[in-house]
C-alpha cells in the first residue's frame, strides 16, 4: 500500500538553512546537508528546500547546495523558490533534485508548467499554491500570502493539473503559522477534485493534526516546518502514532 508521506520543509538563504533548529546532535544547524541527513535518519520520506535568497548569486549558490545534498541524501527532495525558466529547472535536475516546485512564476506564466512537464516529465513538476479565504471564496495569493490574485484556488489547481503539474503543494495561509491544524475541508475538496497527488501544508501543531488530515482527507503527504525543526514532533513518534490509526506509513 502506498504510504502517506511526511515532509519537513527547510528554508534556505545563501546556501544555509534558516529558522531555528534544535536537534540534539547537530553540529551546525545551518548546514543543509547535515540537517537533511538527520531528517532522513529520523524517517522523513522526502524533503522540500525553499530558497529564499534574494541576491543575483542565488542560482549558483543553490546549485552547489543541491549537489551537496544529493551526494549525501538517500531519499527524494524538492527544490522551490526562484525557478522561472527551463534553464533554472534543468540546472537543478542535473544537480540531483528530484522535483522542482513553482509558485508565483506559474501563476504569472502558466505555460511554464506545460513546458517543464514536456521537457522533464510531470513527475518533476510540483505546483505550489498559497490560498486564503476571501469573502467566502478561496483565492490564490502570491508573495507568501501578501498579494491577492483574481484567480480562484480550485480553478487554478484544476488548470495546473491540465497543464501538466505532477503534484500540488497546497498551503492554506489562513492556517499557516497558527498550529491549529490543517485546512481539512479545503484539502479534501481539492484532493477529490484532481487526479494527481496533493501535499497538505499549513497549520500543523501537534501529532493529532496529521492523523486528522490523513483520516479526513484524501491528501497523499503532509508538510511542516517548525514542529519538526524545533523537535516538537519527532518524526519516529509521529509515524508510530499514524500507524496506530491504521494510516499507512514507512517505518
Amino acid at each position: 500500500m502506498l504510504s502517506k508521506r511526511i515532509i519537513p520543509c527547510l528554508d534556505v538563504k545563501d546556501g544555509r538553512t534558516v529558522k531555528g533548529v534544535n536537534f540534539v546532535d547537530l553540529k551546525d544547524a545551518g548546514d543543509p546537508v547535515e540537517l537533511a541527513w538527520q531528517y532522513a535518519q529520523q524517517g522523513a520520506d522526502e524533503l522540500v528546500f525553499l530558497d529564499i535568497t534574494a541576491t543575483h548569486e542565488r542560482r549558483k549558490t543553490m546549485i552547489e547546495m543541491v549537489k551537496s545534498v544529493a551526494r549525501q541524501l538517500n531519499i527524494p527532495f524538492t527544490i522551490g523558490g526562484g525557478i522561472t525558466e527551463i534553464a533554472d529547472a534543468e540546472a537543478l535536475l542535473n544537480a540531483g533534485a528530484d522535483k522542482i516546485s513553482i509558485n508565483s512564476a506559474a501563476v504569472k506564466n502558466p505555460q511554464l508548467i506545460a513546458d517543464l512537464a514536456k521537457v522533464f516529465g510531470v513527475q518533476f513538476v510540483v505546483v505550489a499554491v498559497d490560498t486564503k479565504l476571501v469573502a467566502g471564496r478561496n483565492m490564490v495569493h502570491l508573495n507568501g500570502g501578501r498579494l491577492i490574485t483574481e484567480i480562484q484556488t480550485e480553478d487554478w489547481i484544476k488548470r495546473a493539473e491540465d497543464l501538466g503539474a505532477g503534484e500540488i503543494l497546497l498551503t492554506s495561509m489562513d492556517h499557516d503559522g497558527t498550529k491549529q491544524g490543517f485546512d481539512c475541508k479545503l484539502l479534501n475538496s481539492i484532493s477529490s477534485m484532481i487526479n494527481i497527488p496533493v501535499i497538505a501544508s499549513g497549520g500543523a501543531g501537534k501529532t493529532a493534526h496529521f492523523t486528522e488530515v490523513f483520516t479526513t482527507t484524501g491528501v497523499d503527504a503532509a508538510l511542516a516546518a517548525s514542529v519538526f525543526h524545533f523537535g516538537e514532533i519527532p518524526i519516529p513518534h509521529l509515524k508510530n502514532e499514524l500507524k496506530k490509526h491504521n494510516i499507512p506509513v514507512r517505518l
Binding site: 502506498l2 520520506d45 513527475q123 505532477g166 503534484e167 487526479n195 494527481i196 497527488p197 497523499d220 514507512r250
Partner: peptide, 15 residues
Amino acid sequence: DKALNIKIPHMGWNN
C-alpha cells in the same frame, strides 16, 4: 488506468 481510482503518477513509498 484512471478508472482504478488511483492518483497518477504513482509517487511515493510503497511496499
